[in-house]
Nucleic acid binder design. Structure first.
Ligand SMILES: [Mn+2]
Ligand SMILES: [Mn+2]
Ligand SMILES: [Mn+2]
Ligand SMILES: [Mn+2]
Lengths: 216, 216
DNA sequence: TAAAAAATTTAGACTAATCTAAAAAAATAA
DNA sequence: TTATTTTTTTAGATTAGTCTAAATTTTTTA
């Protein structure tokens, strides 16, 4: 099928192109910790395989077959993350790097059986949607806590920052996926936010508020 | 750590050297479906890393650190095979190739947690012993059915041929790991064997009898 | 709109892993 | 023990993926 490097490029392009549908050489290079010249080489290879639309100097987008592969890898990544947390009791801040490796296990049948074994979960430990075996997934809108007004609230359903340090910080503050929260105050001075969670009140920075996503 | 190719070479050398402690270039080449010249190149690399003892023209053996790596890979291979059969309901003839890929997932912690999750199984679906996290495993003697006399019997505890076709054949004859059997007759003409299993009697060739291992 | 800066591609080199063909060493046979 | 065969190693190429440095194109700034 495709090499490990090709799969990583397709996935990176998919994530970068979610917004404007287009990814630049430098964006890809920085997201894969590689050099722009290496990216150019690979873009030619992927274009030859009709997995991306590549116009030199103009950036790239995925073709339908490229997108199908990318979504397949994301499906595997998120299912393995779910497995690691739900079955092997890893913490949500420990699983990403492991899943980066496991997402390249090639068997479709394996991943479909894993999906069934776990009861067809809809979201990974970070709240991200898990594509089903046809590549479909829900894409409901979430709001960053920083965009919510006082006395509004909702359920924590996602994060924008997936770094271990941020996830550990959320654990400590008991702000995890599924928690119902209510914004009780916004400090004018630094835009930090006071949040009611369960019986506790916690105080978080504007930056943290910007990286926590809730469903209203 | 080590590359995928290096891991495969170490594992191949381990399996080949089980008997006489030594593996030849050609043996390694044929077990990895590669050419002798490629093997020579890799042997130099592994010797540089002190993972094998290599004397040109004399074959190789694993050093203690090479053996430790090889056993670690075999542990992963067999634990994943167990997982695939016990948790994902694959058949015993479907899991080897999948495990060939999964055995290279690098995390030790992952495999130790998987081991715990499954209750520290001692044998894989083919009866082969699973090394524990220290690399220890039991090595009790098994006898091929072809070496057993009439009216003797025991429990099927291993196979020498791991091919899908042989495993499917055993499934069909209901000769699977854990079955208690008794040899009721040995045909003089072709050394084929009549075996009592449960309430049935099955007739198997000398070759098949040679590839079924029992504990007395 | 011309100059400067930034982004991207090209040129040329490197490593890991593989191959074929030829040379060398070891094992076997006459 | 010499000749033949088999095994193993060496020599020289190839492919995927990466790099640095230089050239080119695009974008921004003045
Ligand atoms: Mn992840
Ligand atoms: Mn995730
Ligand atoms: Mn196997
Ligand atoms: Mn096995």
């Amino acid at each position: 099928m495709n090499t490990l490097a090709e799969e990583n490029y397709l996935k990176a392009i998919y994530h970068l192109a979610v917004n404007d549908g287009n990814a630049s050489t430098n964006q890809i290079a920085s997201s894969l910790n590689t050099k722009a010249s290496s990216v150019t080489d690979m873009l030619k290879k992927l274009a030859d395989k009709s997995l991306i639309n590549y116009i030199p100097y103009q950036g790239v987008s995925l073709t339908p077959s490229g997108e199908k592969i990318a979504i397949g890898i994301i499906r595997k990544h998120r299912l393995w993350e779910y497995f690691l947390v739900e079955k092997l009791n890893f913490k949500w801040d420990q699983v990403h790097d492991l899943a980066e490796e496991m997402e390249h296990i090639s068997s479709e049948e394996l991943i479909d059986r894993l999906d069934k074994f776990m009861g067809y979960p809809k979201h990974d430990p970070h709240g991200d949607p898990i594509p089903d075996c046809h590549g479909r997934f829900d894409t409901h809108e979430l709001k960053p806590v920083s965009a919510v007004t006082v006395n509004e609230g909702g359920t924590i359903s996602g994060v924008r920052d997936h770094s271990s340090s941020f996830l550990q910080y959320l654990d400590k503050k008991q702000l995890t996926i599924g928690c119902k929260i209510m914004i009780t105050d916004i400090i004018e001075y630094d835009h930090s936010v006071v949040v009611q969670t369960g019986n506790k009140e916690v105080h978080i920075s504007r930056e943290a508020a910007n990286n926590i996503l809730i469903a209203l």
